[in-house]
Write a protein that binds this DNA or RNA. Sequence first.
DNA 1: CATATACCCATTGACGCCCATATAATCCCA
DNA 2: TGGGATTATATGGGCGTCAATGGGTATATG
Lengths: 153, 153
Amino acid sequence: MDLFVSKYINKIDKKGRVSLPSSFRNVLPKANRNEIILYKSIKTPSIEGCGVGRLQEIAKRINNLDFFSEDYDDFSTSIFSEIITTNIDKEGRFLIPEELKLYASIKTEAAFFGQGHYFQIWEPKKGLKNTEDSRRRLLKEKKSLRMMLTQQK
Amino acid sequence: MDLFVSKYINKIDKKGRVSLPSSFRNVLPKANRNEIILYKSIKTPSIEGCGVGRLQEIAKRINNLDFFSEDYDDFSTSIFSEIITTNIDKEGRFLIPEELKLYASIKTEAAFFGQGHYFQIWEPKKGLKNTEDSRRRLLKEKKSLRMMLTQQK
DNA sequence: CATATACCCATTGACGCCCATATAATCCCA
DNA sequence: TGGGATTATATGGGCGTCAATGGGTATATG
């Protein structure tokens, strides 16, 4: 499996270390299995993460923008300076930078949610609530979608 | 990782020395790991820096501008004539020239912002505000930033 | 000779590496 | 197929190493 799936709740120890779920570690390419990137989620109070390979793609994409344009600087600043690389130790653990923990209100436990090509890290309660909310939104939309489809003009 | 990412705030000591963040040092080619170039950012009150190898890339970018445009001369002059090379000592520290410190209002602390193939040095408060402003500008076109981060291939 | 810069050494705290344990998952063979 | 044995995962803690920082001294450069 080469996708981040399922959810896990792991403890953060005194040193601030937390285990990246084993199944997530296996998604990382064997070459760079000991490093991940983390950044603030744009839409939610959570942290998003993935392997460093994605960083190369992002760099390439930004590099293709007009070097002297304002967008170039904005993207470059918002993405590169906000991304944090962190190392995974021999036991599969890593450190969540203080700034990111604050952003996500994470203290003693971290909830990992697979999102396919990336994953999210939440404060457990917030994460579970977010899952419920998402599901509720989906059901609501589905319902209205069905109405739209069956409704007679 | 061969890109400048993340941000760091380091102190400038009495002698004017400041540590180049360790992760930035590792981006520099092993051959010229003890030398960087610095120049005034064109669009912001900050200093930009990178390894000496990047000079070639900058030259190429400028060459791609219309040779007869005003921009060509302006960029060419403002960048090349202002470039300063600086040595990094055994402990990974270097001196920021007085003129550049003035330009960026840097006094006792320097904030390093990764920008991919180069980095910026800011007076901490100004730098953080700049990051916020950049993000705010981009969020108006919310989709683009999100796409940049999560898009596949 | 005076100032600036490079080199050397020291300190502190953070982080990586190593070892250890408990629980859970898997295996393997009778 | 049952049940002990092996392996893997999550977690805890000791300790050495490295990064950031401070300061003394030699050296250079005008």
